[in-house]
Design a protein around this nucleic acid. Structure first.
Lengths: 202, 202
DNA sequence: CCTACCGATCGGTAGG
DNA sequence: CCTACCGATCGGTAGG
């Protein structure tokens, strides 16, 4: 039974969830302990776990928060662009910018956690698999639209293009983190530009 | 002071290190506890940690073992191939085959751990960064040789090609694990084939 | 390589 | 959202 008002409780919950995602991008979600979170948040352990009742619920809430953050940082800025090649290019720029700005301090939380939990059946993995599948489908849809508008070669397979675009961003995130070298984003950008070169008249 | 003979002690050490790498590919290296390892190995905790004296030393030993395994499974079978495009294609086939055969049950241990430890300064991260950098350099060298032999377009940047080839394999590993769908390896294979299409006479 | 043990911390709950 | 507490487990050591 919390003493504070409903809005205050919601703000506390929000703070816990965001700090969890940020810290987990650095240290990993599975080994992150409630006691450690309590320390950095200046709360008691029961203050951290109380609103969620279990560690898994807190983990799922952190994943939900990160998905919302990704949508806000990457999708929403580009949604007004015209569908097709223009929006696809805008998506890729926003995605790389999200990595460059270090929205999560330890690299893309959603990538790190999807690799961390890919062998642990449960809500975290399911939620991530659905979100990632949907995101790949969004990319694929933009490729199809671009093809229909004559902006990309029609012989390309949209799912294949989506796989490759995702691969470039993921590898850039990996190299940036492991080698502490932001130039990895440049390699991804070059690969994306080459793949998304407009269809040439032949 | 171990009671068993030197060879037996070395075999035990080997078993601990290999099981650690295999289990860590599933559960992660950081959250893997000595007690859990002791259970699955049928040893006492002190039997597990004794030969290494600390958890970090055991982690480093597991990484060394996985690097040796990767070399044995991916590099050694293709080393006899002629340098250049032939060996590069053989490398990529062996690399995908290593994923397909599930040499590590939870996907590529070296990829998973490099993402897990990329924000934890220490011996594990340093060892992984060096090994990965060297591997990318090997790929890059094969691309250069292929170019010098007229097998690949000379306008390609070898480091860029290495980045992209690595990205395809890494994304295939990720998708295979997260979506439990081995067809991801096919997408990587298509992307590799397209990138390594021989130079056309023009 | 085992038993027995150390202090610290784990996730979680009771009660306020 | 706190204090106080639960049994279990953590990494690691002493001693054989």
């Amino acid at each position: 039974m919390p003493r504070s008002s409903k809005p205050a409780a919601a703000a506390t919950r929000e703070a816990i969830v965001e700090r969890t995602a940020a810290l987990a991008s650095i240290e990993g979600l599975a080994p992150l302990s409630i006691g450690h979170l309590a320390d950095v948040l200046g709360l008691s352990k029961s203050g951290v776990i109380g609103p969620f009742r279990s560690k898994e619920n807190l983990q799922v809430a952190a994943v939900e928060s990160a998905i919302a953050r990704f949508r806000c940082e990457v999708w929403e800025p580009v949604a007004p662009e015209p569908a097709g090649l223009a929006r696809l290019r805008a998506i890729m720029n926003a995605w790389l910018s999200y990595l460059e700005r270090e929205v999560f301090p330890g690299g893309c939380f959603l990538t790190a956690v999807s690799l961390e939990f890919d062998d642990r059946p449960g809500a975290v993995r399911e939620r991530l698999a659905v979100a990632w599948k949907r995101w790949l489908t969004v990319i694929e849809g933009e490729v199809s639209t671009a093809q229909a508008q004559g902006e990309l070669d029609r012989e390309l397979d949209p799912a294949q293009v989506a796989f490759q675009l995702n691969a470039y961003v993921m590898a850039a995130n990996w190299a940036k983190q492991l080698f502490a070298d932001p130039r990895a984003l440049g390699a991804a950008r070059d690969a994306i530009d080459r793949l998304l070169a407009p269809a040439k008249a032949r």
